[in-house]
Simulated assay, not measured.
Amino acid sequence: MQDPQIYLLLGDVLYKDHAFKYTFKVVRTNRPGRPYSVISRATIEDQGESRKVIVKTYRRIGDISAMKVAQRTYQEVKAWALLASAPGGCDNINQFLGVWVTDPNLIPEAIPGIPSIVTDYVKYGSLEYTEGREFGIRQLANGLSFMHRLNIVHGDIQPDNFRITKDGIVKIIDLGLSREETGEHTGFTTTILPSYLFVAPELIIPDEDDVSMFVTKASDVYAFSMTALHVLDGQGYKSRPFNHCQGPYPVRKAVMANQWPREQQYTGVTPQAWKIVSACWTSDPSIRPPIDALLQDLSRISRF
């Protein structure tokens, strides 16, 4: 097993270059529902004004080792830094503010030597904002397109992983499963029972509850299409993909059998939008359209 010091050494320059220099106050830490990390809300003083931020701290839980925490932190910071430094930037990626050498008196779960990740606070959850209103999904496609052009796979596109500002700007958040797309199979699996609502068929491991973490641009596209279905229908959590299935195992079975969501159960989705997103529902990732093609198609029908 590799020593966590390897990832600390790899991150040494990276962390120094992105050290968070503001003084801030942790307001609240949310522990439930985030098995591998805790999420804290904080405020900072920026040029005399108070500003809300989010602090993500990876932690040990169950059999998760310090090595795994160091590795996950390094990989996520690397992705954030690459996106933040890319020419032109992208308004639909949340703003990365840096890393913070965590004070264990404020966040006891922090492991010495492994920093926390600081990003902008974004006011609205995606379903909170979009429920009951006409809302396109082009901005999410634009953010994902930006990532894919840099050869970065998000790995966990779903409604919980983008938020919306008070001005209606979509921001992709949480790069915890992101990776550079290469031919190398990481072999990672998750032992957390997935919902399967946004998991591409090729990631489902037969006869097991686990899913592969060998995420790709094609699996991102699949997850995007199911996310778009959820959001475009405009009924919040009632619009979830596979709403004809009750529970994770029936959804898993439907995915493996190519039994896709049924158009008549998503009355908020226009026929044009349905044609675009349903083109991604295939067990063969090689024939899914790239995100740029989806972005182009959605731009013709979406004003957002």
Rank of each mutant, 00 (worst) to 15 (best):
V255C: 10
A223H: 08
D12T: 10
H230L: 13
G48H: 05
E181V: 15
I164R: 00
R240Q: 02
K171H: 03
I205A: 09
T102C: 08
S178A: 15
S50Q: 14
P201W: 15
V13G: 04
N258S: 15
S50C: 11
K238V: 13
T189E: 14
Y7G: 00
D233N: 15
F24H: 14
H154Q: 12
E49N: 14
S65C: 04
N258F: 07
V170G: 02
Y7K: 05
P289Y: 08
N92E: 13
I54H: 02
P108K: 00
P271E: 02
P248Q: 05
G236K: 07
T227S: 07
E76K: 12
A218F: 12
D292S: 07
D209H: 02
L193Y: 11
L295K: 02
W100R: 05
P248K: 05
L9V: 10
L175H: 03
K166D: 03
G132A: 00
T130V: 05
L106M: 07
F242I: 11
V69E: 13
K275M: 02
A79T: 07
I61M: 10
R41A: 01
Q265V: 03
D167A: 00
V251L: 02
G247V: 12
Y15A: 05
L298Y: 00
M213A: 15
V53T: 04
S145I: 00
I137Q: 03
G89W: 04
V26D: 05
N94M: 08
G234V: 11
Y74G: 07
H244T: 12
R72L: 09
T29I: 13
A200K: 11
E109N: 06
Q296G: 10
D156Q: 10
D103V: 08
P32N: 08
A200P: 00
V251H: 07
R28I: 10
L150T: 09
D103T: 11
R133I: 09
D103F: 07
V69T: 10
W274P: 12
I152K: 09
G62K: 05
D207G: 03
K238N: 15
Y15M: 05
D220T: 15
R51D: 12
L193S: 10
Q296E: 12
I169F: 02
L232D: 01
P4H: 05
G247P: 04
A141E: 06
I205Q: 13
G268K: 03
Y266K: 06
G62V: 00
P290C: 08
P87G: 09
P32C: 01
D220Q: 09
K238D: 09
I39R: 08
R34D: 04
C245A: 04
A70D: 14
V27S: 06
D210P: 00
L177D: 13
Q246P: 00
S37G: 09
V269F: 06
Q158C: 13
V53I: 14
I173S: 01
I64Q: 14
I287G: 01
Y121K: 07
Q47I: 10
